[in-house]
C-alpha cells in the first residue's frame, strides 16, 4: 500500500509555482529522500501533505485516505517542518507533555522513552530557550517521534546537529524503518546524507519533480571519465580515436568516456607512452553527488 500518494499535486503562490504537478508514491517502510535547492518546493510539499495548505490542483492521500482535519490518521503521522520551534519558556518535558496532551496520550513513559532515545535525558528540565541548536533539533525530533508514528515527515531533520548527532539520527531512522516498518519521507539539501539514508530519492527543482531514482542505482547514474593531459593533446586524441576510444578535448584536458579506459587507465598510459606522448597527468574523475544533482537540475 502507498503510505503517501500524490497525483499531479500543485500549489501556486501568485505567479510562483511552489509545487508543480508532483506525483509521488511512497510505500510502507520506505525511506524516501526529497532533494532540492532552497526554495525548490520541499517544505511546501510537506505542508501540503500535512494539510497546512490546500493544493490548487491534484490530490494527496496518506494511508490511502484524503487527510482531513481532526482525523485520527494524524496520530499515525509525526512531523518536523524546517526550524524545530518549541515553546521557549517551557522545559523539554513540558513541551513534550503538551504534545502528548494534544495527541490524547497521558503515558509519561513515552516522554522518558523518547528523551532517553534522543539523549535529551539530562535536559528534560531545561527550558527550550536555553537549549543548544542541536538539542533544539533533538526536541523537534522528539515531538515528531513521541507517539511512535507509522509515517514520519521530516524537513531537514539533521540541521544543526554535530557529526555524532547526524550519525545517531541516521541510525535511529534506519532502525525505525527496518524494525518497525516506519515510512519516512525526508527532505534535505544535503545530498550525501540523503544518499546514505534513503532507499529512493526524488529531486525537485522549481516545484517540479525532475528525477526519481533508487539510491542503489545512484552509482550507475554517476558519470566517470578518464582525464588525461599531455604535451600534445590533439595528437593524443588522434591516437586514442584511432584505437577506438571516445576521446575529446575539454578545458585543456582529454576526456575519455569508455568504461574499458576508466577501468584500466594503465593501458591508456602505456599506449600514449609507446606513441611518444607520455601523459603529464592521468586520473579517473568520478562525479560527486553535488555535481550529479546540479547536472540533473540543469538538464
Amino acid at each position: 500500500m502507498n503510505i503517501i500518494q500524490t497525483e499531479n499535486l500543485s500549489k501556486y503562490f501568485g505567479a510562483v509555482k511552489a509545487v508543480d504537478q508532483v506525483s509521488i508514491h511512497v510505500k510502507q517502510g520506505e525511506i524516501y529522500g526529497f532533494l532540492g535547492l532552497n526554495g525548490a518546493g520541499k517544505t511546501t510539499l510537506i505542508r501540503l501533505l500535512l494539510g497546512l495548505i490546500k493544493p490548487d490542483t491534484g490530490t494527496c492521500m496518506l494511508f490511502g485516505k484524503h487527510p482531513k482535519q481532526a482525523n485520527k490518521i494524524w496520530n499515525n503521522v509525526g512531523y518536523l517542518i524546517e526550524t524545530p520551534h518549541a515553546y521557549p519558556r517551557l522545559s523539554v518535558r513540558e513541551n513534550l507533555q503538551l504534545i502528548c496532551k494534544l495527541r490524547g496520550f497521558d503515558d509519561h513513559r513515552l516522554i522518558n522513552e523518547i528523551t532517553d532515545r534522543l539523549n535529551l535525558g539530562e535536559y528534560v528540565h531545561t527550558k527550550e530557550e536555553n537549549l543548544s541548536m542541536g538539542n533544539k533539533q533533538r526536541l523537534g525530533l522528539a515531538k515528531a517521534l513521541i507517539h511512535r508514528p507509522k509515517l514520519l515527515l521530516l524537513d531537514e531533520p539533521i540541521n544543526g546537529l554535530d557529526p555524532a548527532g547526524i550519525v545517531e539520527i541516521r541510525e535511529l531512522l534506519q532502525e525505525l524503518s527496518e524494525q518497525q516498518g516506519t515510512t519516512i519521507f525526508l527532505s534535505s539539501h544535503i545530498l550525501s546524507e540523503i544518499a546514505r539514508l534513503t532507499s529512493r530519492i526524488g529531486i525537485i527543482h522549481k516545484g517540479a519533480l525532475v528525477k526519481e531514482i533508487k539510491s542503489a542505482d545512484l552509482d550507475e547514474q554517476i558519470i566517470m571519465r578518464l582525464h588525461i593531459k599531455t604535451t600534445n593533446n590533439p595528437g593524443a586524441i588522434e591516437v586514442l580515436t584511432d584505437k577506438g576510444f571516445q576521446a575529446q578535448l575539454a578545458n585543456d584536458l582529454i576526456e575519455v568516456s569508455d568504461s574499458h579506459a576508466i577501468d584500466q587507465p594503465e593501458t591508456i598510459s602505456r599506449l600514449l607512452v609507446e606513441q611518444g606522448l607520455p601523459p603529464k597527468l592521468i586520473w579517473v574523475f568520478e562525479e560527486d553527488l553535488e555535481h550529479y544533482f546540479l547536472r540533473i537540475i540543469k538538464a
Binding site: Q69, A70, W74, N75, T83, A86, Y87, R103, K143
Partner: peptide
C-alpha cells in the same frame, strides 16, 4: 511569533476545539 503554530494544525484534535 514562536513558530509553534504548525504543532497545532495536524492533530487528531480539531482546529475548532483548539
Amino acid at each position: 511569533a514562536d513558530g509553534t503554530i504548525k504543532d497545532l494544525l495536524a492533530l487528531p484534535i480539531s482546529r475548532t476545539t483548539i
